[in-house]
Amino acid sequence: MDLLLDAVVIGVLLGCFYAAVSIGLSVSFGLLDVPHVAHPAFLVLAAYLVFFINEHYGIDPLVAGLIITPLFFVFGLAAYRLYYETFERRGSDAGVRGIAFFFGVAFIIEVLIILQFGVDQRSVTAAYIGKSWRIGDMRIPYRMLVAFGVAMALTLLLTLYLSKTYMGRAIRAVAQDQEALRLMGANPIRVKQWAFGIATAVLGLAGALLIIVAPIDPTLDRAYIGRTFCVVVMAGLGSMSGTLVAAVILGVAESIVLTMFGASWAPAIAFAMLLGVLAVRPQGLFGRRS
């Protein structure tokens, strides 16, 4: 029973962390319909940059994450521009090539990381890594609490941004009805590009969390394809609050399976849930589409 409680508590914390790494995809794929298979590769790239900054300058990983955020924002703007010019604008048959494009990009990033950093696991150092908080019999690693706090803040901020600001509302509108947006005088392409920039910028901190939570290796993005897409699809494309709930469900499920069946089954959980959701309820639990 205690074990189970432990698993659930850790699972909730883990889930919030998953929300933070998925929320960018919730915008880029969920709202903008970009088949962004390279999202997890961008995430791992961010984590490696955080590692680099932390190792060379001794800067706290979270601060490092903030440092690379503007960089990733610009990177996102450029990436969307390229995607738009080559695929969306040409229109026909964009599907197959768009997907292949991001798949290729993910592979390139993976190999570049291997060439630069090697295949070994990497981790960061910070005061809150390696220590735990004890409540009764339960031990909660501080790094999980940090990840939880930052993840919650990030998710909340993005949700507020999308619902309260003019640009945020334009982004939500672009997902629903581009024509209406054009009539309002906003350029849908600009809005989408901006949104993709935001979605990528969020990966700065998310990448920091990734390496805070556990050591990373170059092929970690493959596991996160399952986790991030599972969360976004389960949430119902583009639903921010849904993202949080779906991520917590995934976190708890993974944590319980890990406790009961062992680590060797863990990689399949997210993918199995993803497949289940896709097959049974592709519009997600909180879907925006009928």
Binding site: V37, R222, A223, W265, P267, A268, F271, L275, L278, A279
Partner: peptide, 21 residues
């Protein structure tokens, strides 16, 4: 009934699940 990216993601999922088994 899955199209586009959903089909693609489902095939990755299948790969990882079978590998895990």
């Amino acid at each position: 009934r899955m199209q586009g990216i959903f089909f693609s993601i489902a095939t990755i999922a299948l790969t990882i699940i079978i590998e895990t088994v």
